[in-house]
Structure formats: structure tokens, C-alpha cells
Design a protein around this nucleic acid. Sequence first.
DNA 1: CGACTCCTGACA
DNA 2: TGTCAGGAGTCG
Length: 261
Amino acid sequence: MPELPEVEAAARRLRAAAVGRVIRAARTFHDAARRALPDRDAAQLAGRRVVGVRRLGKHQAIDLDDGSTLHAHFRMTGDWDVGRDDAPLPPHARVALSLDDGTRVALAGARVLDGVRGHAPGAAPEPRLGPDALDPARDGAALRAALRGRRAAVKPALLDQRVVAGGGNIYASEALWRAGIDPRTPAASLGPARVGRLADAVRAVLHDALDAPGRYQDGEALERLRVYDREGEPCVRCGAPVRRTVQAGRSTYYCARCQKR
DNA sequence: CGACTCCTGACA
DNA sequence: TGTCAGGAGTCG
């Protein structure tokens, strides 16, 4: 499920459910989940009050009242399930936090690449991230500075979290389509005007997704995507067939006619 | 830089 | 049965 809009929506649900609540118990349900959050760390969560939930790119930081932090990441398949503590666990539940008001938040993800890990006070839980994709300060000038000196094509560069924290594979294709930029263009060769358009497009596609209900595996959300997973279909802007290529091992979709180098 | 890796599920 | 998937840390 998770690109930035879905992570943002999930973080809002978690925030509404958990901030101000005290964790009664934390449980893990999979070896990989215990690797990330050993029983010892999980046990220490009991009695901690949740004081805040922050989204950092596609990462989430759950701040606790002793200054420690839980760091969550959905990777490919994670999501928060919020429900009553006595309700059945969702499929693929990996970690569950029982709260003092009888609710339970569970991290569920089929591929088990997602996880929660604990961090002591003062530890820096998050990897080095660039400016957030939705941060208005991440304008064309900032993006251009981040792309300076990069030999790589612009599309894989947009997936580098140090360039765009929260960048993801689907919306990278969508933003480049909207900006009219060929995804194979060397990142550093883009001029200020085009990078400015790209910076605007990145924010625009993410805001569109945030404002619209549903996730991109739902039909309605998929229909909003202009090029992603539309190989062979006519470009909705110019009619030329959408093409698919692979960059850095990830699918890229683009229009060869109206996206220019 | 790209390649590889962690897992499971969906689909051809 | 084989291939692919919305991510990203690690390695060469």
C-alpha cells in the first residue's frame, strides 16, 4: 500500500488513536517482527504514554513520554489497523500495541518487510532524509541543489530519500509525466525552469492523492494515475502509447512523445 | 551507481 | 511453477 499519501493517512489515524494514550502492552507475532522489536524492548513499552506521532518521509516516529521513540516503516505492504483490543487481529499482524482506552493499534503487512523498532532517548532513529516531499520549502531551487552532480537519471534520483523524503515509485512516474520530463534524463542536466516544474509536480501529485479518498489499489485511485501501470494505453495528454522501462530495477512508465529529455 | 536482499501474495 | 510487486539498507 504505502507511498507517501497512504503513509500520511495512516499516520493521521495512528495519531488520532494513540496520542495521549498509555501503552498497556506490546506484542509481536512474527520472527522478523521480533528481530526488529525484541521482547525485552517490547516489554519496556508498557506504561509509556504516546506524546506524538510524526511522519518523516515514509517513516513514522512514535514519540513516548520518556523521550524514547518507536520507529515504524511500512515498506511495501504495511498499514495500521485500529480497533478494539478484544477484536480479532487483522491478517498479517506483526506488532500490536494495546492502549489504556481499550483500543489496539496493529501494524499489519503481508510481506513482513515492515516493522517497528525502539530507540532510546537521544538516539537518531531515522536515516538521513532530505526535505519532505510535501514541504513547501522543497521548491525548485532546493530540488536542483539536491540533484546537482548526479549522473543518474532523474527518475531513480526521485526515489532517493535524501533527495525527496517520501518519494516513491508510482508518484515519481506520475510527477515526471505531469512535468513533461523524460524519466531517463540525467538529473543534473535539467535546467532551473524544468526542475521547478518537477518540484511543483511532485507536490501536486501527492496532494491530489492525499485529497482523494482511497488507496491506489482501489479502482478509483488507480484511475487517477496517468501513466503508472498503463503500458500500451494512449497517453491521456497526447495519445501516444505509454511505455514501460526498468530503471534501477524498478518499473518506470512514461510517454515517449510528450515527456522530453 | 546498480545488484542483491529481506518476505509473502497475486497473477500469468 | 515462475515472475513480479508500491521500499530501502547494504554491498561491490
